Amino acid sequence: MHTTPPGPIDVPTVFPPVARFARTTVRLHPRRGTPTVDQSSMGGLLWWPADEPWPTCDGPDDFDHLDHGPAEPEVPLVPVLQLLADDVPELPFPTGTDVLQVLWCPFDHDPFSAPRPELRWRRRADIGARRQEMPKPDGEADPEHIPDPCVLDPERVIEYPGYDLPEAVWPQIRDTITQVERDTGWEYETDLAVASGTKVGGYPGWTQLPQWPVCRCGSTMQHLLTVASWEFSRGDEKRWIPLEDRPAMAGWDFDSPDDHPWRALQSPAGLMLGDAGGIYLFVCTKCPDRPYDYRFDCA
């Protein structure tokens, strides 16, 4: 069980213009472990049909595998997330599916100099015989782009927009933000708005200006999920570290040695995407085949 502590500020009461932008996000709380193939997981085994070829990068071309010389074809994708409808029913599963799988090529790709993800929506009852082993990652891939196996503990949290807050709203709350920070030390954007870490739904944790993709049908895509390098970073740690993990943080500091327990809480999957960045996946729920796109940013 992981419990995000409530903030000391009731956002709808203190910042009324923000209340209508509230969204529920599902914090996945990855933690190092040994998930089984029939569990929701990060970096774990995937429920993959035995008769379906394992996906590979569609390179080589000049925009694949940046900074690694000529791209080699047929580099196997690596598993990133497997999410079951039993655990995260909030996902916009296409009719007749109950599993979402996210994989990516662990090399950097244009246009974002980051791993390039792919999605699979499945129905468990249709999978039949399952693949018993997954291909080993390419030996030249950056190990910090290959998530270590983690179990998940989904938790629902209400969040509010930071960068995605409409420009017209900021003048209405700017003075209150300053007053709250002066009186309590709590900051709107880091402590009260967008939840940190790997999560489903809610708002992307942009560190740059938002870049919401538009579907071919003309609709703005919906934020499907975020895969984050860190579950918290300097400045947002006092709000987004679960209560159950607080004892392990005793004596922590960002200069603490690598073997301090807090580091496994901050980066349980061992990812480092750019400079502690995140990959944001988007999907169009108006189209039945669920077209998707992604964005990447970092500090």
Results as ranks from 00 to 15, higher is better:
residue 116 R to F: 14
residue 121 W to N: 00
residue 88 V to P: 02
residue 128 G to D: 03
residue 135 P to G: 07
residue 114 A to K: 09
residue 135 P to Q: 10
residue 117 P to R: 05
residue 135 P to C: 10
residue 109 H to N: 06
residue 123 R to N: 13
residue 135 P to Y: 12
residue 64 D to T: 15
residue 92 P to Y: 04
residue 76 P to V: 07
residue 132 Q to P: 00
residue 72 E to Q: 15
residue 88 V to S: 09
residue 143 P to F: 04
residue 65 H to P: 02
residue 91 L to V: 09
residue 110 D to Q: 12
residue 68 H to D: 12
residue 118 E to P: 01
residue 139 G to R: 14
residue 93 F to A: 05
residue 145 H to A: 02
residue 95 T to A: 15
residue 79 P to E: 01
residue 136 K to P: 11
residue 64 D to F: 13
residue 79 P to S: 06
residue 102 V to K: 08
residue 78 V to A: 00
residue 106 P to T: 07
residue 145 H to Q: 06
residue 138 D to F: 10
residue 76 P to A: 04
residue 79 P to N: 06
residue 91 L to I: 09
residue 83 L to V: 03
residue 132 Q to F: 09
residue 128 G to V: 03
residue 85 A to Y: 04
residue 88 V to D: 00
residue 88 V to H: 04
residue 70 P to I: 08
residue 88 V to N: 07
residue 93 F to H: 12
residue 103 L to V: 12
residue 136 K to H: 12
residue 86 D to H: 07
residue 67 D to M: 14
residue 90 E to F: 10
residue 96 G to S: 03
residue 125 A to W: 06
residue 92 P to D: 05
residue 68 H to K: 11
residue 71 A to Y: 10
residue 72 E to T: 15
residue 134 M to S: 12
residue 88 V to G: 03
residue 102 V to Y: 01
residue 83 L to T: 04
residue 107 F to A: 12
residue 129 A to Q: 15
residue 116 R to E: 14
residue 102 V to N: 06
residue 81 L to P: 09
residue 143 P to S: 03
residue 120 R to V: 00
residue 116 R to K: 15
residue 140 E to L: 14
residue 68 H to L: 04
residue 125 A to C: 05
residue 122 R to A: 10
residue 80 V to L: 02
